[in-house]
């Protein structure tokens, strides 16, 4: 688990004059499920294609299993890819699609038969061998694509938004199956997605990207609970982000009040951003030493209610299982460790 499998050093990539990846460094360990998460255009797919060898980087190094991949073309890398929209070979049936890589390697027929059978069993597609791929549903095609990749026993599997075109239920099922598969195969996965829930559910490590720059790397819990900046906080889950001032260590000032918190290490009176997750706020009766507001809206979401409270013209989102009435005067209550302080970034709220 601890051996580094892929190391990216100072990768740079531009298309025409637009730099899509800025001096990016990252490593992936053996047997790790790493997710590149970010909005479209953040460079995550480009980065994946650089690792796969389908795209060349302008500067920097891709080190795979201890070797610089600069002069290794895609077809010689021990990496396989599950492409967006799968890129199955339309002229071949399921068996021939999965067997394709093995046939290129000129393995003998019996070995190919056994390996393809095993791969199809793993993705639960036994009995579909002779089916043309065009006659398969989206979910089945995706399984064929996975089988076609893993049958080659790569050290690293790249997945480019493979669940994007599936419906919600199927997508959730596949999230668990993929995670299970990764654990049982014991290979590293690099998974690209713009879906934060997908990233949090499956990954060992999440890499949040924006405009070709890594915003944060961490375990899903850390990314969610300790976002490093406004972008990560707003991209991962719903959150209330408020500007404030760090008066001193463990004392933060916002909405006209002082609060004790658990953060330190900022300059005196440094302007900062504060994140409070909607599920961390508890509503109570108005009080003088609390943030007070009026309930503006309440929406039933199934598991909880989403309550919008207006405080001095600013909307706070609160998730609660207890309903309130629109127009109720309430106070917002949270514990010191539920106030998360982040360095102020220059961008406007996004």
């Amino acid at each position: 688990m601890d051996k580094v499998l892929v190391e990216l050093k100072n990768i740079k990539k531009s298309y025409d004059d637009t730099e899509v990846i800025h001096n990016l460094s990252l490593y992936i360990k053996e047997n790790e499920f790493l997710t590149l998460l970010g909005p479209s255009g953040c460079g995550k797919t480009t980065l994946l294609r650089i690792i796969g060898g389908f795209e060349t980087h302008d500067d920097g190094q891709v080190i795979f299993d201890g070797q610089d991949m600069k002069d290794t073309p895609a077809y010689q890398r021990e990496i396989n890819t599950v492409f967006q929209n799968y890129a199955l070979f339309p002229h071949l049936n399921v068996f021939d699609n999965v067997a394709f890589g093995l046939r290129i390697k000129k393995l003998d027929k019996d070995t190919i038969d056994t390996k393809v059978k095993n791969a199809l069993r793993l993705v639960k597609l036994e009995g579909y061998e002779q089916r043309p791929v065009s006659k398969m549903s989206g979910g089945q095609q995706q399984r064929v694509a996975i089988a076609r990749a893993i049958v080659n026993e790569p050290k690293l599997l790249l997945l480019d938004e493979p669940l994007g075109s599936l419906d919600l239920k199927l997508r959730q099922d596949m999230q668990y199956e993929l995670k299970e598969m990764q654990e049982s195969l014991g290979i590293s996965f690099i998974f690209v997605t713009h879906d934060q829930e997908e990233a949090l559910t499956m990954s060992d490590t999440v890499v949040v990207m924006k405009d070709g720059v890594i915003q944060q790397i961490g375990r899903p819990e850390d990314i969610y609970n300790e976002p490093k900046n406004r972008f990560t906080a707003s991209f991962i889950g719903e959150s209330n982000i408020v500007e404030g001032v760090m008066k001193e260590d463990y004392l933060v000032h916002f909405e006209g009040l002082d609060f004790t918190c658990v953060d330190k290490g900022f300059a005196k009176n440094e302007p900062i951003d504060i994140v409070i997750r909607p599920e961390d706020i508890v509503l109570a009766a108005p009080a003088d030493d609390r943030i007070n507001g009026v309930v503006d809206d309440i929406i039933f979401k199934g598991v909880h209610y989403e309550i919008i409270v207006l405080v001095n013209g600013r909307e706070y989102i609160i998730h609660s299982t207890d309903p309130v009435n629109v127009g109720d005067e309430v106070s917002l209550n949270f514990d010191p460790d539920e106030i998360h302080v982040m360095k102020r970034t220059d961008e406007a709220s996004s």
Partner: peptide, 30 residues
């Protein structure tokens, strides 16, 4: 009309560019 990743998929599975054209692209546009 072809999936733009078709050639990449062929390379990914061990074809060189020429093999990719012969074994994947040409059969797909038969």
């Amino acid at each position: 009309e072809l999936d733009p990743n078709l050639m990449d998929a062929a390379l990914d599975l061990g074809c060189n560019y020429f093999e990719g054209v012969v074994k994947v692209i040409i059969p797909s546009i038969k």
